[in-house]
Design a protein around this nucleic acid. Sequence first.
DNA 1: ATCCTCCTGCAACGTTTGGTTGCACATGAC
DNA 2: GTCATGTGCAACCAAACGTTGCAGGAGGAT
Lengths: 116, 116
Amino acid sequence: MNAAVAEQVDDSLWSAIGDPTRRRMLDLLLVEGDGTATTLSQRMPVTRQAVAKHLGVLDRVGLVRATSAGREKRYRVDEAQLARAAAQLSSVGSTWDARLQRIKRIAEAIQRTQQD
Amino acid sequence: MNAAVAEQVDDSLWSAIGDPTRRRMLDLLLVEGDGTATTLSQRMPVTRQAVAKHLGVLDRVGLVRATSAGREKRYRVDEAQLARAAAQLSSVGSTWDARLQRIKRIAEAIQRTQQD
DNA sequence: ATCCTCCTGCAACGTTTGGTTGCACATGAC
DNA sequence: GTCATGTGCAACCAAACGTTGCAGGAGGAT
């Protein structure tokens, strides 16, 4: 695992979950099962229109899916896609942890050498 | 763990690592040990000034630290802070995984009930 | 059917952020 | 000293997040 590890991260997916408002929305949808732009906005400090735009973003990357029910449009989380996103998060975190530990080992080795 | 789980995420730290260019910079700094705005920009598809701004952001949240060496300014990652960031990533990923598995269990339980 | 309500969708606007170019300043090499 | 290299600052552009305002569509009550 020498130099470039190619960081296999879907950038559109990452930027979708990068926004704190969208993370909050995903959280609400997970807890409540589903929701509309209106119901979500009532539980968050932003307007319905802002929520609607975010739902559009999440829908474009496949993290949520919409079903038209009469005059309202219910969204729910696409579980497979969210699982992929979660895996990416853990993956980047693990990569950094691995690099940090490698650095730590090298530093310790140098210290040992200098103590001779 | 019913409704609100407070999502204990440092928002400034998250938004700092949310940008793909900044993640790339952190990666380069980890691999090469340290770097300046100029050397980093040579390995990336953006200008030196853009890199300098990102280094400013990373420095403000404590992810990198600068040491003035002559006419150049070398940056290196703050390992403790990056470890905290990595932990946050894994934490959010794990939270989502837990919610998804909980939903999966509920769905299975409902299916069993309906099969009776 | 008509009126009223609720939810959605579109357009315009302001602010922040990532990126650029251009130029001025400081430091090291000659 | 001159010249080259690295940094820093300011102006500018484009995209994204958020707002307000208004038009339109679907249900329920009279």
